[in-house]
Write a protein that binds this DNA or RNA. Structure first.
Lengths: 339, 339
DNA sequence: GACTGATTTGTGAACGCTAACAAGAGGGCG
DNA sequence: CGCCCTCTTGTTAGCGTTCACAAATCAGTC
């Protein structure tokens, strides 16, 4: 329990444990690595010595010889936003549970160069795999460009033979939202999209379009924002003046908040005058005025799945290279039949 | 430029570069580490060889001998929230700029055990330092408990000789908010606090109290939430019914959102019936209905400062062990003189 | 009781790097 | 010319693991 009075100047190593247990360093190594061929008795002796000395194996020495670092690199952008942040958390949890370290590189700006730079950073660290949470179109292209020697799993992308993909079915989510509005009797349904260099933004716009077309409705009211509440506000003001739609499918919750604010200022009521559906379901959305009907995606689950796929690849499994998570429609009070 | 047709099976090492440049491996090492005593000519030869082979130094081998891993561990909780997430980003940026890797461990639950577990995780990785973004009271105590051999900087804590501290002056932020309300003529100013096992929550409550007392006003209306919009909503409903205060200083923006929703439902107007000040200033707060007056804290700057302090300590500097960042009051339309 | 095969343990050599020291080259000066 | 000093380069020995192999032990069998 108590610390030994004089602290040794170096951390104990295999050799020290071996000496105390009266075995060779190799035997200790076998115990530490759970090799089968160690007698019960020896194992106990060694474990006792390990406990007594507080031995922990040296990661650097280990990776030097195994050429594996037990580290997963997570390359992310917009990591302060609800979605990416929770995906990161999911990855971290699954990784640490599996005995991996998680190294993070955040991109402030997403360009070919910043991506390559971050990947180099990870390769310098000799990560065993890279999880990419950079939902831009540019990402996949940039990744394909450089000969990475380690497995890569990219969130939001479709998998291919070089890069695994785990994503939420954005298109389906969009269809859920739009079909709900159609079912309520809306016929003029607009879409406030995210920037079209984002994979998800494109997929959501496609889902919006396909759902409308399937119902024989016109898909002609699309405006592009930048995901921020501010851009939602600006768009909301314009839409309030035009009043062409009775319902809006909005690319994310933040823009929906800005739109809500603009409509409110313009004296329009949600949902009576205009219905609104958001996307993501951050915890706050349930407390907007009015509470926002949304398409929910489970980001943490997404992150966990990424890591599952990564572990499978690292384990040499041949499994699927792409994995799709289902979104879910959550009804609240920002939608109602048109007046 | 082009890849050599047959890719070597191993990555090049010092020896390979040395062979190509016609020098010893040690000279190459000197070039790589920017040692001064290398002739200009040799340096050029070596650099050319490095470039030709695409040599990158092996981190594991390097840390094995230097006993330094060039890695900073970031221990965080609530990392999906705006504040902690941005602090992490600040740390990451500063760390990567300084040539460090950033390893993350996220706590799902903050207890003595989970903290110790994560610290052990980092020590196994032989991190050079640990940045702690776990704004709970329990943190400092838990950290003090175990003999960590590396520098620790904790966000939100006051520094002591064992642990460096970088924090925003929460108390001052609270005072700014409350003084603003007092200046507008409010005399019944309540506080919706965060959980009192959070360092910041306590400091904000203290600031609220001290500002009121300094003005000779009663500090008797304090309710405790859990930071979430949901708890803000519940509290808001109760306060709307009681109507004891004409202004509320709210512990964070999310709770303010919930309160806004509750007051709205109750038919009360903000700011006419009740003024509201939030804390943090997440980007959305400017688009609440009405836009929220807040105390802003610069989380990314906070993270950068953490890393600055860490680098100073790692560099052997004796500098200050505690660092305070100033908050700022941002006026929007959720505050006005009482009716 | 020697032979076979499996199980358990030990030995030596990497892994790729840096630190410490040694050696060689060159310059200034008496 | 010889001495000392500085600058540059090379040599050797670890750092703490794991891997490949060798050796020792233990049964079981004829």
């Amino acid at each position: 329990m108590a610390q030994p009075s004089s602290r040794p100047r170096r951390l104990p190593r295999l050799e020290d444990v071996a000496g105390l247990a009266g075995v060779s360093h190799q035997t200790v190594s076998r115990v530490v690595n759970n090799h089968p061929n160690v007698s019960r008795e020896t194992r106990h002796k060694v474990e006792a010595a390990i406990a007594e000395l507080g031995y922990r194996r040296n990661t650097a020495a280990r990776s030097l010889v195994t050429r594996r670092s037990q580290t997963i690199g997570v390359l992310g952008s917009e990591l302060s936003q609800y979605g990416p942040a929770n995906t990161l958390l999911g990855v971290e949890r699954a990784a640490r549970d599996a005995g991996y370290f998680v190294s993070v590189a955040a991109l402030r700006e997403v360009t070919r160069d910043t991506i390559l730079d971050a990947v180099r950073h990870f390769l310098d660290q000799a990560v065993d795999g890279i999880v990419v949470i950079v939902p831009h179109m540019a990402t996949v292209a940039a990744l394909a460009e450089l000969p990475i020697r380690v497995p890569v799993v990219a969130v939001g992308s479709d998998g291919n033979d070089a890069v695994g993909g785990v994503r939420v079915d954005q298109r389906k989510g969009a269809e859920l939202a739009v079909r709900h509005l159609i079912a309520q009797g809306h016929t003029r349904i607009g879409h406030v999209a995210g920037p079209q260099d984002w994979i998800d933004a494109v997929a959501r716009a496609e889902g919006w379009r396909s759902a409308l077309e399937a119902a024989g409705l016109e898909a002609d009211l699309l405006v592009e924002g930048d995901w921020s509440a501010g851009s939602g506000y600006d768009i909301g003001r314009r839409l309030a003046a035009a009043r062409r739609a009775t319902a809006l499918f909005v690319g994310n919750d933040q823009m929906a908040l800005g739109i809500l604010r603009a409509l409110n200022e313009a004296g329009l009521n949600v949902p009576t005058d205009i219905s609104l559906v958001g996307f993501d379901d951050q915890p706050e959305s349930a407390y907007f005025s009015p509470p926002l009907t949304v398409v929910r995606q489970d980001f943490e689950e997404l992150g966990r799945r990424c890591m599952d796929m990564m572990l499978a690849v690292l384990g040499g499994e041949e499994g699927p290279r792409t994995l799709v998570v289902e979104p879910e429609l959550v009804l609240r009070s920002s939608t109602s039949p048109p007046a």
